[in-house]
């Protein structure tokens, strides 16, 4: 199967006059048509940055310094600015974390949707209106005609996120990058939004990259999982395999940090220490200082090694199944 989006060895740095901070150091991942890839990691691991690097919306001084982003085999990073603009929203769409902040507070929903439509297609106001109503209807917004006249502050958080999703879906994009879209919502609403996005993507064959720090969320929705640590993907593979038998000690640690039923009263496992700052990354494996399995070899940087056809891990001593 050819993947819709293929990110190869992506390096993103913050380039300042007197200092360059390498934030992404060789991120590789791919996502297929209709597939949901969960991108997991702690704050600062570079998951959001990966999203913005893919659609080239890094704010200065952030800059992609190396690597390829292939959309259907076409290199996105070499496109001109106008071609790139035309790609955003039409073929690569984004959904953001906080629905309170993603919609413009002083523009009506209709204006925002019309602008998003007209960014890529010439159309009349009436036509845009029809399309917008259809899109709102699809994400389950009741009485879409009257909602079009609303301003964002007149809608609830869940409704706003639905509007944002409707906007992201307007042009039937190939890929949607969803950056923690449920984190700011109530748990009940979270579930609704999760299944909404899941169904919409399945139906249309849209590839979805779901960025989150919440393993529980991603376990229920993703097909595959990529775990990021300090600017690198450390493990990637099918979600069930990865959760059942994590190969990277960091993945293991992440899973153990999630409180589970049946462990009541037991001490919750923690990963000792904290993720190193980007300015003081260790030379070798960046997880080694926190890793209980670290050995002398870990002073060098391990490559991504394939465990089987679908899984690979960045570790010299991948955990065997069942071990902890």
């Amino acid at each position: 199967m050819t993947s819709v989006l293929n990110v190869k060895d992506l390096h993103t740095s913050f380039v300042m006059p007197d200092l360059t901070i390498a934030a992404l150091q060789g991120v590789s991942l791919s996502v297929d048509k209709g597939e949901i890839l969960g991108l997991v990691g702690e704050s600062g691991s570079g998951k959001t940055l990966t999203g913005f690097s893919i659609n080239r919306l890094l704010s200065a001084p952030g800059r992609v310094v190396q690597g390829e982003v292939l959309l259907h085999g076409q290199d996105v990073l070499s496109l001109g600015e106008e071609d790139m603009r035309h790609l955003r929203g039409r073929r690569i769409a984004m959904i953001f974390q906080d629905p309170m902040m993603t919609l413009n507070p002083v523009l009506r929903i209709e204006t925002q949707m019309r602008d998003a439509l007209r960014a890529h297609e010439k159309m009349s106001k009436a036509m845009a209106r029809t399309r917008a109503i259809a899109a709102l209807d699809e994400v389950g917004i009741p009485a879409p005609e009257s909602r079009l006249r609303s301003y964002p502050h007149e809608l609830s958080g869940g409704m706003r996120q639905r509007v944002a999703i409707a906007i992201a879906l307007l042009h039937q994009p190939d890929v949607i990058i969803a950056d923690e879209p449920t984190t700011a919502l109530d748990v009940t609403i979270q579930g609704q939004i999760l299944s909404l996005v899941q169904n919409l993507c399945r139906d249309r064959g849209t590839a979805l990259i779901w960025i989150t720090h919440d393993l529980a969320v991603v376990a229920g929705i993703a097909d595959r999982l990529a775990v990021m640590y300090a600017g690198r993907v450390v493990e990637i593979g099918p979600v069930d395999d990865l959760l059942d038998a994590p190969a990277h000690p960091y993945t293991r640690g992440l899973i153990d940090s999630v409180p589970a039923r049946g462990q009541r009263g037991q001490r919750l496992k923690q990963i000792p220490g904290r993720m190193p700052a980007l300015t003081e990354l260790p030379v070798g494996c960046s997880f080694a200082p926190r890793c209980e399995h670290a050995k002398a070899a870990c002073a060098a940087l391990p490559d991504m090694t394939a465990l089987d056809a679908e899984r690979s891990v960045r570790c010299f001593y991948p955990l065997a199944e069942g071990s902890a």
Binding site: R85, M94, F96, D98, T102, N104, A116, A119
Partner: peptide
């Protein structure tokens, strides 16, 4: 975020500046 979102939707810079930014 709403300006980033507007960019992520491919809205032209000119339109973002004259409407989305200016009104605020």
């Amino acid at each position: 975020d709403y300006i980033k979102f507007a960019r992520a939707n491919g809205i032209r810079e000119r339109r973002i500046l004259t409407t989305h930014v200016m009104k605020n």
